[in-house]
Every structure is written in C-alpha cells, then in structure tokens.
C-alpha cells in the first residue's frame, strides 16, 4: 500500500480529493465497504458521514492506522496480500483498492481476492500508457518519472505498473464484468472510459474501474 498521490487538486477545503470523490460516487448509500490501503481513513470517514456506509479499512502504515482509529473508524493494521484471506466471501458490497494495485506482488491474485470478498471491486491505478510516460522513455531512455509517478525506479513501491489496456486484458482473463470505467486527466477531470475509447490509454494519467463478479 503506497501513498496515494497528492498531486490531484481538491475542489475546496470542505470536500475530499477529486480522485477519492470519484471513488465515493461509485458507492451506494448504506452499503458495506472495505477500503484496502485506506490511508488515514479520509474516504471511509467521508462515506460514513455522507452515505451512512458501514466501513472497514486495512492499512499498512501504523501511523495512518492510528489516525484513522482516532477518527473512530474500524481500521486495522495489516498487509493486503497477507490479510485479505482472513475475511469471509461476499462480506462486503464494495471493496476499494485505490492507487495500490500496482504496488502489490501479485495483482491478479489481489483482484481475484477483492472480488471474493465483495460484490463489487472499485480499483484505481496510475496509467503507465499515458503519453508523457511513453514520451519520457522514448526521449530520455530512462524509466519515466512523471507528476503521477515521481519516484525513481530504485525507490518506487510500484513494482507492477500497467496501462489501461493491460488492465482490461487482465479483467477479460478473469471473466469479470466492468460496471463502470473512468479515465482521469492530469487535473483530475474524469471522462467515461467508453466515451473516450482508445484515446484514454494515451491521455489519461489515472483510471478507475468498478468491477463486478
């Protein structure tokens, strides 16, 4: 579980980051939600306060778990690849994995795991197919460093980066349904993935998909 990027602007002080808001928009009121890699619980608190969601969180960083628990959230310290297996099948309506899939050892197993626990999986990730990434590699001959993916190759936790196309091919292999898909540009503006078509893979810095098993 890595830091979620802080480059995306928030609407204003009172609202949450636009990427989190987009995740929140996918969640139905009064549902049961597990936020995997929930950080300090900002999204869970927002869902609790605005949608009366019954939320749980899993987070690797103890400092962030502490802040979340201090907010009165049901968050535990743990590692998603070690701890998801302890949850029963179909325990949640939504399992959220925000900006973390690319940092897992086995993204395929993780996706399968998410869809075992929840009816829906809401997954967002940085798009390695973005033109700046492609251009950076082409022109500099070095691993791309972009505002969304600023770390050097040797200290990044992102060990399994993928493009939107890669992700869709994996989803296809898993045989799960895509209920919704969004592409986000550098300003956090969303477009429906279907509306933007193949251009999304070139012009989106991030993507968000709602999967259903």
């Amino acid at each position: 579980m890595t830091d979620t990027p802080s480059q995306l602007p928030a609407h204003d002080e009172a609202s949450i980051r636009v990427d989190l808001q987009l995740v929140a928009d996918q969640i139905k009121a009064d549902s049961r939600v597990l936020d995997v890699g929930c950080g300090d619980g900002m999204l869970l608190a927002h869902l609790r306060d605005t949608k009366h969601v019954d939320g749980r969180g899993l987070e690797l960083s103890m400092a962030r778990v502490s802040s979340a628990v201090r907010e009165g959230l049901a968050v535990i310290q743990g590692d998603l690849e070690a701890d998801l297996k302890h949850y029963p099948a179909d325990a949640f309506d939504y399992v959220i994995l925000s900006q973390t899939l690319q940092a897992t050892h086995n993204p395929k197993e993780v996706l399968e795991g998410l869809l075992r626990l929840g009816t829906h999986a809401v997954v967002s990730f940085p798009n390695f197919g973005h033109w700046k990434v492609r251009l950076a590699l082409l022109l500099t001959g070095r691993m791309p460093s972009t505002p969304t993916l600023p770390e050097s190759w040797y200290d990044t936790e992102n060990i399994h980066l993928c493009t939107i196309k890669d992700f869709l091919s994996l989803v296809d292999e898993l045989g799960v349904t895509i209920e919704a898909g969004f592409a986000l540009d550098g300003n956090g503006q969303k477009r429906s993935y279907k509306a933007t078509g193949w251009l999304a893979n070139l012009f989106s810095e991030q993507a968000l998909f709602v999967l259903r098993h």
């Binding site: 049961r32 778990v65 049901a74 968050v75 535990i76 310290q77 302890h86 949850y87 029963p88």
Partner: peptide, 11 residues
C-alpha cells in the same frame, strides 16, 4: 475479520 466484525487494531 473472519466474521467481518467491526474491528480497529493498532500496535
């Protein structure tokens, strides 16, 4: 967790 109980845990 196996009971999907409401649980917080801090070390």
């Amino acid at each position: 967790n196996a009971n999907a109980a409401k649980v917080s845990f801090v070390e």
